[in-house]
Amino acid sequence: MKLLGISGTITGSKTKIVVEKVLEEVKKNYPEVEVELLDLKQFDVQFCDGRNPSEYTGDTKKVIELVSSADFYIIGTPIFQGSITGALKNLFDLVPPTDFRNKVMGFIATGGTYQHYLVIENQLKPIASYFRAYVAPGFVYAHNNHFSPQNELVDKEVLERISALSEEVVFMQKTLKSTNKEPLLQ
Rank of each mutant, 00 (worst) to 15 (best):
V158C: 06
S166Q: 03
V63W: 01
Y114N: 13
I79C: 00
P78H: 00
L40C: 10
Y117P: 04
F139G: 12
A128T: 10
D71W: 06
N90R: 00
I120E: 03
T110K: 08
A70T: 09
S178L: 06
Y30K: 12
L159W: 07
L124N: 10
E168Q: 03
R161P: 04
K174V: 01
R101G: 10
I74T: 14
S54N: 14
V67P: 05
N144Q: 05
T175Y: 09
K156W: 02
M1D: 11
V35L: 05
F92G: 09
A128R: 01
V22G: 07
D155M: 05
T9F: 06
L88I: 13
P53Y: 04
V158Y: 12
E167Q: 12
A136R: 01
R101H: 14
K28V: 09
G12M: 00
G5F: 03
Q46G: 11
K156E: 15
E32G: 09
R161N: 04
G50R: 10
V95I: 09
D71Y: 03
G12H: 02
P53T: 14
K125E: 09
F43D: 11
V119C: 08
V140M: 04
E121P: 05
V95L: 10
H146K: 08
L159M: 01
I127A: 03
K177T: 12
V104S: 07
V95N: 05
V140P: 04
I108D: 10
N29R: 02
N102G: 11
T175E: 07
E34V: 12
A136L: 02
F92T: 02
T113F: 05
T98P: 12
V169P: 01
T15H: 08
D155Q: 02
N122C: 01
D59Q: 10
L88D: 08
E65N: 13
L40G: 07
T15Q: 04
E65R: 15
N144I: 05
Y114C: 15
A164G: 14
A87N: 00
K125V: 02
V45A: 08
I74R: 08
K14F: 02
I6R: 06
A142R: 00
P53D: 07
S7Q: 13
E20C: 06
S7M: 11
F139T: 00
V26I: 13
L40R: 10
Q46M: 07
V170R: 04
E55Q: 04
K61F: 05
F92R: 08
C48L: 03
E168S: 04
S178T: 00
V19Q: 14
F171H: 14
I64F: 01
E157W: 01
T98R: 11
L184Q: 02
A142K: 00
G12T: 02
D71K: 06
R101F: 11
I75Y: 09
V169F: 15
V33Q: 12
V45Y: 00
K14H: 10
N145Q: 14
T9N: 10
R132L: 01
E182G: 01
S83W: 05
V26D: 02
K156N: 11
E34W: 13
E121K: 10
S178F: 12
V67G: 00
E32R: 07
V95E: 14
I10P: 13
T113G: 12
L185C: 02
R101N: 13
K174S: 06
L3F: 02
A128N: 08
T179E: 03
G138P: 11
G138Q: 01
M172W: 03
S166T: 08
V35E: 05
L66T: 11
I10R: 11
P137S: 11
L88E: 01
K27R: 06
